[in-house]
Design a protein around this nucleic acid. Structure first.
Length: 372
DNA sequence: CTGCTTTGTATGCAGGGTCC
DNA sequence: GGACCCTGCATACAAAGCAG
């Protein structure tokens, strides 16, 4: 705790922080790590705790914030949220931060610039997302994140490790996880990175999913899967069968990594394609799954189509306006939220009248250029 | 190509809060 | 009261988009 306070003070004085950073790199390379070394990965009871559990336990602390009324304190809390998010996911973007902290574009720019000035994060231009840039932590920022999250992060500050081809996918996962966190639907989460760090085969471990969240009410673990392309649905469904087998292994196991799988995408079409592929596999005479296994898979895999438009709008729509003029952009968000509600209602009630209303609402969206 | 508009970001300022 | 930094607003500016 003492250390956290100290670094916060340091961070609010850029020149001092800079000097501290320089000193760290030259004169005392071994001094600073002592700060977080004493909080070694152990639980309160003292027994060894695995990395994923540790991540789940600590993940929400700085990510889920209630903004204090004191502007200065609020600024620091927000800065910490940015550091915690970027630390946990290894990259982030202005759009994700903006959405999570409920800020306007101007305020995010100021927040990010402030952190940049303090030497905590760096912003890299790219063509791979709608922001045209992504955020990573500097080596100084990584230390800050490790202090905040109270665990080792195994992060590197060099940008060449960021795979720009996965950027939108990764940011979409963040969007969903953070939305769940903010809505208090989950009590903790572990990112794909966290899983990879603990699992033996690292990068290509078959048990890897895009994120792991813990349901706030039931405490059950849920795997989050994000389908950003439909490449896996082409061919003969062999890939889907392998993926199902992978899920089944965890679902059937008593100490599996997760009990449910939630599928997300920016396109409703991709989700229905996956659902269809599943039924095809189950229906085929040579189906590798017993009927009880099929039931388990059907019950455990849920398709979250209500988030499609949100993900599309924030991550994929290159025509989206970044500056919010309190007009088009917010109207659009309102429309999309209303649409999602209506879709949910139509699905739950199966009411013909609501379905007609939904179709009308969709048509209106198309006429206004919000939907395609 | 030019000149105009739009878009995204940066900066300075006023007015406002909390905490020591 | 001063340190600190929030917010919104006005303004400036560069880059991109676009019609002619």
């Amino acid at each position: 705790m003492v250390f956290v306070r100290k670094t916060l003070a340091l961070r609010s004085m850029p020149s001092l922080a800079k000097r501290w950073q320089d000193a760290k790199q030259t004169a005392f390379p071994c001094l600073f790590p002592l700060g977080y070394f004493y909080v070694l990965v152990k639980s309160k009871k003292g027994e060894e705790m695995n990395y994923i559990e540790r991540a789940i336990e600590t993940s929400m602390r700085h990510v889920c914030i209630s903004a204090p009324s004191d502007p200065a304190a609020r600024g620091l809390v927000r800065e910490n949220a940015v550091i915690a998010i970027t630390g946990a996911f290894s990259v982030s973007s202005k759009t994700v931060i903006q959405r999570h902290l409920d800020l306007n574009r101007e305020s995010v720019n100021k927040l990010i610039n402030r952190l940049k000035k303090k030497g905590v994060i760096s912003v890299h231009p790219t063509f791979a997302n709608t922001d045209r840039s992504f955020i990573t932590l500097t080596s100084f920022g990584i230390r800050e994140a490790e202090l905040l999250l109270n665990r080792e992060l195994n992060l590197r500050s060099d940008v060449s490790r960021v795979n720009e081809r996965n950027l939108i996918h990764d940011l979409s996962v963040q969007l969903i996880v953070l939305k769940l966190a903010k809505a208090k639907k989950i009590s903790g989460f572990a990112t794909e990175r966290d899983l990879a760090i603990q699992l033996e085969h690292r990068g290509n471990d078959p048990r890897l999913v895009d994120a792991l969240v813990v349901d706030a009410n039931t405490g059950s673990k849920i795997a989050i899967e994000m389908e950003a392309s439909n490449s896996k649905n082409k061919n003969n469904g062999d890939i889907r069968r392998r993926i199902l087998t992978k899920y089944l292994e965890e679902l059937e196991s008593n100490d599996g990594l997760y009990e449910f799988v939630h599928m997300y995408s920016h396109r409703q079409r991709f989700l229905t394609q996956i659902e269809k592929a599943h039924t095809r596999i189950f229906d085929s005479r040579s189906s590798p799954f017993s009927s009880s296994q099929q039931r388990l898979l059907l019950d455990s895999i849920k398709f979250k189509s209500s988030e499609c438009s949100l993900i599309y709008e924030l991550m994929f729509n290159s025509k989206r306006q970044l500056s919010d003029e309190n007009g088009a952009a917010t109207n659009k968000m309102n429309y999309i939220e209303q649409l999602a509600e209506l879709e949910k209602l139509a699905k739950n009630t199966q009411d013909r009248v609501i379905e007609i209303r939904l179709n009308g609402f969709r048509d209106a969206g198309k006429a206004l250029g919000i939907l395609e």
